[in-house]
Design a protein around this nucleic acid. Structure first.
Length: 887
DNA sequence: TTTGTCACG
DNA sequence: ACGTACGTGACAAAC
């Protein structure tokens, strides 16, 4: 049986638009109509509890009624743009609610609704129609009620036959007669001039239809009225016809297809976020989900296992899928200690305290079994923690963190609880912080409390998999997900191996740099004539600009800027500035690289960085504790830091393999610009070539200034160029910068075209993608705020380039690693620095490794049966006794 | 915790 | 007229 709800989309949207104040989201998009509509929808869903639901919309401007009456709806004002811009968002909201949205060429929403309702009646199904338009009252029947909006959007008046008789004294089918007589100004249905609602109702009481009224025109009260009816009888008949809902619209969907489905909460959350519907977002939040649907993961059953029993042993040997989590005392798996391991099969949860693991061979074997599939959250972290206690972790089938990252890399690292509320809002998992306390108050739980919390976590991991997999598949991210999963294994090994540091060299260099720091500090103090904290930009600003009266070039929001580019401009004016710049440079080396690295140096004389796979929105890795991706190289002074990074033993070398100009090559690949492609095919120095192209000179005419400028433009292009950005970088005027950019685009027209297209694509789809289909959403692409929008546009240009370069090196890492394993090489991959890979290599493997790296890095996708770039990737390889020498 | 600065690609 | 280069992490100072 069930109940069908039909919503008159246009009518409700209009109502909402005019009833609500002009709300906008942060990007300045109007949202009031969508907001009102959504409120109404929620209310209807709750109050009517429909089994089936549909939203009908008008389509296009012309309908079959125009053939009957050309002026139909003629008087109606054009839809304001503030309203029409909201329609795509309404569609997204409906899509998220999984509510059908029906529009049919040539027909209005009324007709669509009329047809559905008729179908429903045939099946003896009840219907409820929601509209602001009285026309719809003609659909009222014993099966069908009509809700008319009263004030606002959510307040409605319910009409059944009884109510209709009471309010108008009419039968439902007489509504069209009413319209025929009185017309409808909003639809520009004429009716009989001079006949309003009052007269029309009076007439219909006596003569039940337009036809009857006309037939008895002589009996009507008042000469004037008789004349009008006689004169305009055709108009009345026409008006009745226009007001009649056509109930045989050819529909592409049957009623069965309108079944109510569970909303897609993740999509709903996303769209509400985008539209800035804070209150609705909160409604979505776990604590207000309806009681009966909402599972507080408070009372997940668990068992603390200190000794395996046979039944559990059996379960573990069945090779079924379990969620697994290893609880650590700290975030950093290289330092943390393992507290215990929890597992869940979606029904049963078990917790093994660390002591119970060590002697438990069955458990260890299960953890190490490649054929026992496991669901983890941040598998790399756990794999490393387990490696440190000599437990092998295999069979990692899912990583919730990686999946969530790929679905929206802009969210940054999420904790499990966030992912749960994103993708399974019907569940709720307390935040770790809420359980453990944060910061200094963080405490270690024990016993039952810990086991209970871990039971919740593993159960949540289990519950998330299906949703995440579906979403990944929908967005064509499954293959990339498999790649990231495998990469996590490689990264775990790299981190676990670590990089050997020559402690003596570090101390020696440290002493030397410390002396320079102290020397420069006292020199600056002497010149300044007072002592102050040179590390404080605030105090330095006061000295430079107040005391010494140097000109202020740039300000920050808190005061004077003392950044390097400002100081460089001030250098000619005062001898102190040069010293300050030098001091800054040296103190950075000392604090960040000497002291910073010393702090991270373990008893094994190795540094174990962490690579983060889910931080950078472009798909790049990042590195921390310590960051080994920003070890100095540009200035000789700093570059010497690299001397402390050495191979594990003296018969090994450090080997560095770096892609030459990957990002520009990627740009050439993506844009297919012939001039750029040729430059790379001919293996030119790309910056010199660009200089020749944009300044129209021969190679020997390229000055170092021209090459420098060309190089800056090439970078600018990758970053999503702006004249201002380039002018800042090159210290030239904006106009000059613009001229250079114009010349660049004249030279490489397909690059220009590519940039325009990618922005267009971002506008259309709301996201951009990389070569492997990695997505980044850019909601600000529609922002009214110039800054936000420009930022999004530059991101749209940069992300496919930076992200594709990330795809390339990630694939290469896997290919290289796989080959190294195959050949049982004892070389080790140590670091990745965005476009280069660092290894330690025994002397006897050196030549093979170089071959292998060339092969695999230049064709990174071949190993995975994917097509490589048409453009050649070029890798430079060198080796040395330490990282410094490998240049 | 936020801000300014600077190291890298 | 707006006020920007893209992506990171670490440090010290100042709130």
């Amino acid at each position: 049986m069930g109940k069908l709800v039909c919503i008159d989309g246009n009518s409700i949207l209009f109502r909402a638009f005019f009833a609500l104040p002009p709300l906008t989201n942060q990007q300045g998009i109007h949202t009031n109509a969508v907001y009102g509509f959504t409120m109404m929808l929620l209310r209807i869903l709750e109050e009517e509890q429909p089994s089936h639901i549909v939203v009908a919309m008008d389509k296009g401007k012309m309908t079959f009624r125009h053939e009957t009456y050309a002026d139909y709806k003629g008087k109606r004002d054009k839809t304001p743009s503030e309203l029409s811009e909201q329609i795509p968002y309404l569609q997204q909201v409906l899509d998220a609610f999984q509510v059908c949205y029906v529009e049919v060429d040539q027909y209005e929403a009324d007709d669509i609704i009329g047809t559905f309702v008729k179908e429903a009646e045939k099946q003896q199904m009840k219907s409820v129609v929601i509209s602001g338009d009285k026309d719809l009252l003609q659909l009222v029947s014993p099966y069908t009620q009509v809700l008319l909006t009263k004030r606002g959007v959510t307040e409605v008046e319910r009409y059944d036959e009884e109510k209709l008789a009471e309010r108008y004294g009419l039968r439902p089918e007489q509504i069209i007669d009413l319209k025929g007589l009185m017309g409808d100004s909003s639809d520009h249905i004429p009716g009989i001039p001079g006949v309003g609602e009052k007269t029309a109702l009076k007439l219909l009481k006596q003569y039940p239809s337009v036809e009857e009224v006309i037939a008895h025109v002589d009996e009507l009260p008042g000469k004037k009225l008789q004349e009008r009816v006689t004169e305009h009888q055709d108009l009345a008949r026409l008006s009745k016809e226009l007001a009649t809902i056509y109930r045989q619209v050819p529909l592409s969907r049957s009623i069965d297809e309108l079944k109510c489905l569970e909303p897609n909460y993740e999509k709903l959350r996303q769209i509400f976020q985008q539209l800035g519907f804070k209150t609705l977002l909160e409604k979505l939040a776990p604590n207000s989900i309806e009681e009966d649907q909402h599972i507080e993961m408070q009372n997940i059953p668990y068992q603390i296992v200190t000794q395996l029993d046979h039944s559990l042993e059996d379960q573990l040997q069945q090779q079924k899928t379990w969620a697994l989590h290893a609880e650590l005392t700290a975030e950093n798996p290289h330092h943390a200690t393992l507290l215990g391991i929890a597992i869940s099969d979606g029904e049963h949860q078990y917790y093994f305290p660390v002591d119970a693991i060590n002697y438990n061979q069955v458990l260890k074997q299960w953890i190490a079994d490649d054929h026992s599939p496991k669901i983890l959250f941040d598998s790399k972290q756990i794999e490393i923690a387990l490696m440190r206690v000599d437990i092998q972790l295999n069979g990692i089938q899912e990583d919730i963190l990686l999946a969530a990252y790929l679905l929206n890399p802009s969210e940054g690292t999420q904790n499990l609880s966030d992912v749960v509320s994103h993708y399974r809002p019907d569940l709720s998992l307390p935040q770790d912080e809420a359980v453990y306390g944060k910061g200094a108050k963080r405490k270690q739980l024990e016993g039952d409390q810990l086991a209970a919390h871990l039971a919740r976590k593993t159960a949540a991991q289990y519950a998330l998999v299906e949703t995440l997999q579906t979403e990944l598949a929908e967005k064509d991210l499954s293959e990339l997900y498999q790649l990231e999963l495998k990469l996590a294994r490689v990264l775990a090994e790299m981190e676990f191996v670590g990089v050997k540091v020559d402690r003596g060299a570090l101390e020696l260099l440290g002493t030397e740099i410390k002396e320079r720091v102290d020397q420069l500090y006292s020199e600056v103090m002497e010149i300044a004539g007072t002592t102050f904290n040179l590390n404080s930009p605030k105090q330095l600003g006061e000295i430079l600009f107040d005391k010494l009266g140097l000109p202020v070039i740039k300000r920050t929001k808190t005061g004077y800027s003392t950044s390097a580019d400002v100081l460089e401009k001030l250098a000619p004016q005062h001898e102190i500035v040069e010293k300050i710049l030098l001091y800054r440079q040296v103190v950075k080396l000392y604090s960040t690289y000497i002291e910073g690295l010393r702090k991270e140096l373990g008893d094994d004389d190795r540094i174990h960085t962490q690579f983060h796979q889910t931080i950078a929105a472009t798909g790049r890795l990042s590195s921390s504790e310590p960051n080994l991706q920003n070890i100095p190289i540009r200035l000789e002074e700093g570059r010497r830091i690299r001397k402390i990074f050495v191979p594990s033993s003296s018969d090994q070398r450090i080997l560095a393999a770096d892609y030459s100009q990957v990002e520009l090559r990627v740009l050439a690949q993506l844009s297919k610009d012939p001039t750029l492609l040729r430059a790379f095919q001919e293996n030119r120095d790309i910056h010199t070539q660009t200089a020749m192209d944009i300044f129209s000179v021969t190679e020997d005419q390229v000055t170092s200034l021209m090459r420098r400028q060309a190089k800056a433009v090439n970078f600018g292009i990758i970053y999503g160029i702006s004249d201002y950005g380039l002018s800042q970088n090159l210290n030239i005027s904006r106009k000059e910068a613009q001229q250079i950019i114009d010349r660049y685009f004249e030279t490489y027209p397909q690059v220009k075209e590519y940039m325009d297209n990618i922005i267009e694509q971002a506008r259309k789809d709301g996201y951009v993608t990389t070569h492997l289909g990695r997505r980044r959403y850019l909601p600000d692409i529609h922002a009214r705020n110039y800054n936000l929008r420009s930022f999004a546009e530059r991101t749209a240009m940069n992300t496919p380039i930076q992200g594709t370069a990330a795809d390339v090196i990630k694939a290469a890492m896997l290919a290289v690693h796989q080959q190294m394993q195959k050949e049982k090489l004892s070389s080790r991959m140590l670091l990745q620095v965005h476009d280069e890979l660092i290894f330690e290599v025994p002397e006897q493997e050196l030549s093979r490794m170089k071959e292998l790296l060339c092969e695999k890095m230049e064709k990174p996708f071949e190993t995975f049966g994917m097509e490589d770039f048409s453009i050649r990737l070029h890798v430079d390889i060198s080796d040395g006794a330490n990282w410094y020498e490998a240049k």
